[in-house]
Each structure stands twice: as C-alpha cells, then as structure tokens.
C-alpha cells in the first residue's frame, strides 16, 4: 500500500512537471531573452548584439538597458505604417473569410448527415498539404500571363492581362485561401448543433428568412464566429510567407519587417523590438482566444 501511494504521488508530480519544464525552458525563457535583447545595443560581432547580462554585474545590467530600439521604432514611421497596415490587412481578411466561410459552413451543416464527415474531411485535407506549396500555386495563377488571365481572356471576360500578383488583392486572396479551414470548422461546429425548429417557428410566426437569419442563426453561431475570427486574425497580423510571395515589395507587414531586420539588416536588437511590438498588438486577442478555447474544451460533456 505504501508503495502504491508513493507511485501515485510520484506520477502526479512528474506528469505535469516534464511538459511544464519543457515549455518553461523553450517557450518562456526565450521570450524573456527577446525582451532583454530588444533593450540592448546592436554590435558588429557574432552574435550581433552586446550582452546586457553578466552574472556578477547586477548594477551594470540595469545601466546597460535602454529604450533606444523602441525610440527608433517610434521615430521611424515605417514601423507605425507597417503596424497599421498589418492590422488593416488582417481585419479585412478576417471579414472576407467570414463572408466566404459562412455560406460553406452553413451548406455543410445542412447537408444530409451521412455526407457531413466526408465534407469535414474535404475541408481539412488541403490544410494537411503544405502551406508554402498552396501559396506557391497561387503565384502561377495570379501572374500577369498566368492561368487566371488565360482563363478569363479565353472566355472573353477581359481583354488585358490582369495585374494582381504583387498587390494587396493577392495578399487577401492568399490569406482567405490558406486560412479558410480555420474559419469554416468552428462555424460548422456551432451551426451543426443548431436547432432547426427555432427557424421553423420564426417562419411560422411570419418572419422573413432574411430576418430570422439575423435574429436567430447569427446570434446562435456567435461562439463559432468569435473563435474562427480570432483563429484567423491573430496569425494573419504576423503573417510573413503570404505578403512576401504574393504581396510584392509594396505590401508593408510587420512580420515581414521583423524578417528583414533579422535576415537582411542583421539588426537583432531591432528585430527583437519589432517582435515585442507585434506581441503588444496581439496580447489582447491572444488572451481572449485562450479564454474562449479553454472554456470550449472544459465545457464539453
């Protein structure tokens, strides 16, 4: 008996401790390091920043910290514009995703029950194929002499080649395409559970379909709308691959700015400061998402 309660206490301690320790070391500590380096000066060396932390020099640690990188971010309006345009592009994309995703999720929820698992699998399948490859596929479609232009000219809809690649429109198409499963699945999950008799009752009482959609379907689908929107908005703000491959040099986004500070300019402290800036923008949506998600998982029977 003694032995058994010992194993129980040991596992109860070890099971949380191992993943906790892993995430602490490889998620939390790296974060604190970003914060620290964003407050240090760049140096022409390897690694290209001056360490601010010496174990035996606590006083030096505090005097070496400065907000120069953040002052630079505030002075140069490039970062301000990149921040604004990231939030704008992500918000517009999320709205487009709702407009495109809702009819699909609604159609799936109304399909005969035996087809529904197949439809869900068909929505998830593209998500399993490489993100990079799916964005690459759009380069060939959206090029000026590309497949979309060829098709539209073939049926006589346009007479001049479309010039969409390397514009913001291409970025919207790319984000909507790549993130669509993240919007459709949460919407479908709430719409599928919806009670149809409510709609029927509203129709019987003389409501128009349009009105019952806004007063019944949309409010009931709200948890799915919120989850799907956050799931798309948060990563879209920091997106790098889509604006880089489809957006051309004109499209300013903060994830791309971070990438070029790091890889092209080799200014690690400034890249860290950009990362902190991006995090400050996202901290509120991330906290809301975490609460929504934790409540959803724990509310299940």
């Amino acid at each position: 008996m003694m032995n058994r309660s010992l194993t129980r206490r040991l596992t109860a301690g070890l099971v949380p401790a191992v993943p906790y320790l892993w995430l602490g070391v490889l998620f939390l500590v790296p974060f604190l390091i970003v914060l620290k380096i964003s407050l240090s000066d760049p140096a022409v060396a390897q690694p290209p920043y001056k360490p601010v932390f010496e174990w035996n020099d606590i006083a030096g640690f505090f005097s070496a910290l400065d907000f120069e990188n953040f002052a630079l971010l505030a002075e140069d309006d490039l970062y301000f514009r990149a921040t604004l345009s990231s939030v704008r592009i992500a918000a517009v994309s999320t709205l487009l995703l709702l407009l495109v995703g809702f009819p699909i999720a609604y159609g799936m929820a109304r399909a005969p029950e035996r087809y529904r698992p197949l439809l869900v699998a068909a929505i998830i399948l593209p998500f399993w194929t490489s993100f990079l490859i799916r964005i690459y596929a759009w380069v060939a479609i959206l090029k000026p002499e590309g497949l979309l232009t060829q098709a539209l000219m073939g049926i006589g809809l346009i007479s001049e080649p479309l010039d969409i690649l390397n514009t913001e429109t291409a970025v919207y198409i790319g984000i909507v395409y790549a993130y669509l499963p993240f919007m459709v699945l949460p919407l479908y999950a709430t719409l599928e559970k919806m009670d149809d008799t409510l709609l029927e009752a509203a129709l019987d009482l003389g409501s128009t379909p349009w009105r019952s959609f806004w007063t019944i379907t949309v409010p009931l689908a709200m948890p799915g709308i919120i989850a799907g929107s956050l799931l798309c908005f948060i990563p879209a703000v920091g997106e790098f691959v889509i604006p880089d491959l489809l957006g051309g040099s004109e499209t300013l986004m903060i994830g791309r700015q971070l990438w070029s500070e790091f890889f092209s300019n080799r200014d690690w402290p400034l890249a860290s400061a950009v990362a902190i800036l991006l995090l400050i923008i996202l901290v509120v949506p991330i906290v809301i998402y975490r609460d929504v998600e934790a409540r959803r998982v724990e509310a299940r029977p």
């Binding site: 390091i33 975490r290 998600e293």
Partner: peptide, 18 residues
C-alpha cells in the same frame, strides 16, 4: 495555448536567441 496562435516569426526569433 499561446504557441498555437503566436506568429511564427516571434516563436522562431525567440528560440534562435535562446
């Protein structure tokens, strides 16, 4: 929950600096 929605550029940069 955070790493799942965290922009990849932040996760990548912070791990590298670590």
């Amino acid at each position: 929950y955070a790493p799942m929605v965290m922009p990849e550029v932040i996760t990548g940069l912070s791990l590298l600096l670590f």
